[in-house]
């Protein structure tokens, strides 16, 4: 079964976590611009696949050649789904920043940051786990 190097999505998550953390520390106009950029990255991950985002390409061309071969390959579908969850949070944050609801925007960025940190530090995909929780809840309604 073909797959991707699992360290690729973790590298992307690390960059995402830094961008989201910086977003929280910047003044509102700059934060708005940065969350928009992050939103575009998330959207690229969803549409093009996680291997073809800017961070995915940096990982493949600059980082992976310096690492030992991966112990196992991973299915690209879970991280791609997680990018969609990230995109949803980025869009909520963007709309809140644009409408002046700064605290709500920062909470949305903070939640996305929790997910990005969990992925970067622990290799845990929170968005993926929400998938089954969502299915269970949706099916019951």
């Amino acid at each position: 079964m073909s797959g991707i190097d699992p360290r690729g999505p973790r590298f992307t998550a690390s960059v995402t976590a830094v961008l989201l953390a910086v977003t929280l520390l910047l003044p509102d106009p700059a934060a708005t611009a940065l969350i928009a950029v992050q939103g575009v990255f998330f959207a690229m991950g969803v549409v093009l696949g996680v291997q073809n985002t800017p961070t995915g390409l940096v990982f493949r061309s600059l980082v992976r050649p310096r690492l030992s071969p991966p112990a196992a390959l991973e299915d690209p579908a879970p991280p791609r789904f997680a990018q969609a969850v990230g995109l949803a949070f980025a869009l909520v944050a963007l709309v809140c920043y644009l409408t002046g609801a700064v605290l709500a925007a920062q909470v949305a960025v903070g939640l996305a940051l929790v997910a990005a940190l969990l992925n970067a530090v622990f290799g845990l995909c929170l968005g993926c786990e929400l998938y089954l929780v969502g299915l269970r809840a949706a099916g019951r309604a």
């Binding site: 953390a21 929280l24 520390l25 700064v102 605290l103 920062q106 960025v109 903070g110 929790v114 940190l117």
Partner: peptide, 13 residues
């Protein structure tokens, strides 16, 4: 508040 949210997010993660 940004710094506070950042700290809480890091702690939670």
């Amino acid at each position: 508040t940004g710094l506070l949210v950042l700290s809480l997010a890091a702690l939670a993660a």
